[in-house]
Computed example of a mutant assay.
Amino acid sequence: MKITIVAGARPNFMKISPIIRAIEKLQTPKSQISYRLIHTGQHYDANLSDTFFEELQIPQPNKNLNIKSGSQAEQTAGIMIAFEEELIENRPDFVLVVGDVTSTMACAITAKKASISLIHVEAGIRSGDLTMPEEINRMVTDSITDYFFTTSDIATQNLIKAGHSKENVFFVGNVMIDTLLQNLNRIKKPAFWDDFDLAPNQYYLLTIHRPSNVDEVNSFIELLMEISAHVEEMPIVFPVHPRTQQILLETKKDFPNFHFVEPQGYLSFIYLLKNSKAILTDSGGITEEASILDVPCITFRSTTERPETCDLGTNVLVGNDKKKISEAFQKLKNNQWEKVKNIPLWDGKASERIVEQLLRINYG
């Protein structure tokens, strides 16, 4: 049983790490399961790529397609051309893609056109927002997938309602949480912690990168000023995405309580998240980690593809609504934030369930 595993961008690396670990754990002469790891190169900055391979102990890729930057169309085309060559040279029984980045969709299409069975991990999640490139990637990938592995019952039902066979949809849990729980004892204080006099529960952690929040400079700066007003004097640690850094350079506004830092490796970022008073974000995956760590999470989006983080976790959607933002910060100040409840199968064993199911699919 030969599986080609695809990773291309930062969110992918956290998802493939426990899957690879589960495959290696279950490798026996009887199972005859092997994998080939392909890095598309979609994220090629060392802070967004290389660091994660080192920290999460992911083996070096069998091949890096080295696609790098470009428009969505350019990246998609480049990945498809290079991945097609890879599949011709090293044809697997299955191609496994994770998440919802450009690499996910591009490699999914290429695999199906080569008549190779397609596995999608984190299938079925939907935000309902077609302005998000990720939503289009999810929909296209799921429309041609053969075997679906979901993080929640809601995602499972989304796929069944779309007409996919129940027999090919497997609710296994969340591989991101596998990675989180496997590495909690390894998280490390970032180098700037003492320089900024940071202390547990005495700072906010901010991540903003979505085009809807950062591409229009005036509205982006207005959002940062709104956040600054509500946190008062408390520090805000802001690991700045490269595309966001460029936008910040275009403004001369001063944010005295902000600490702008480089993108963090996984172990340092989780340390910052775990010890923060709250995470302020527009990410999807971070809302999952915040929920399991029971850290309050304010999300600057009006929709989410992970509703369980709102229903059972610590996540609250505020969009750019000043009233909702104000109410969320008031709840924080009054210590009225909801605690995390049990989220089914987010127990650190999702990857084991995936690999065991794949063995059943292949060998019966």
Rank of each mutant, 00 (worst) to 15 (best):
Q75L: 11
Q32D: 10
Y203W: 06
G348M: 04
E122G: 02
Y363N: 01
K253L: 12
A7P: 00
A162S: 15
P200K: 11
L312M: 07
L65W: 04
M14Y: 07
T251D: 08
S291Q: 02
E135C: 10
T251W: 03
S69Q: 13
R126G: 12
N342K: 15
T141D: 04
V172G: 07
D215L: 00
K63W: 13
N362L: 02
I343H: 01
K2H: 15
T251N: 10
K113T: 03
G128P: 12
R306W: 01
K15F: 03
I3Q: 06
S228I: 02
A106I: 06
I221G: 05
S49I: 01
K68V: 08
P256D: 15
D100T: 06
R91F: 03
T76H: 11
I177N: 01
L130C: 12
D178M: 07
Q157T: 12
P235T: 14
S268A: 15
P59A: 15
I136W: 06
N66I: 15
A7S: 13
E356L: 13
L130Q: 10
E134L: 13
L345K: 13
N257F: 02
E55N: 13
L184E: 03
I3M: 07
P242M: 14
D129C: 08
F255R: 06
L130T: 12
I16Y: 05
P344W: 07
Q264N: 12
M80W: 09
T207C: 01
Q202K: 15
T303V: 14
G124L: 04
K188V: 14
I325V: 10
S143Q: 11
P11M: 07
Q32W: 00
R301L: 06
T314G: 09
S212C: 10
L48D: 05
D197R: 11
T150K: 09
E167Y: 08
S152D: 01
T309F: 02
T76N: 09
D45Y: 13
N320M: 12
R138W: 03
V172K: 07
R36E: 09
S165W: 12
S115F: 02
L223N: 00
N362C: 03
A77K: 12
E55M: 11
N90R: 13
R10P: 03
I38K: 02
D153K: 15
V318T: 11
H43P: 00
T40D: 05
A114M: 12
K333D: 03
Q264P: 07
I23S: 03
Q202A: 15
I270F: 04
A328S: 11
D197L: 11
P344T: 08
I270W: 01
I3S: 01
A199C: 08
V169H: 01
W346D: 04
K188I: 13
E226Q: 12
L312H: 05
N183Y: 08
A191N: 15
I354K: 06
N275D: 07
Y266K: 09
E86G: 04
H43D: 00
M105Y: 03
P92F: 07
S71L: 10
L48F: 11
V340C: 05
A111K: 07
F220L: 06
N174G: 11
F94T: 04
S71Q: 12
D215I: 00
F220I: 09
L317S: 04
S302W: 11
P263T: 09
A155S: 14
S268D: 15
R306E: 02
S268V: 06
V95H: 05
V95R: 05
H259D: 10
N362H: 07
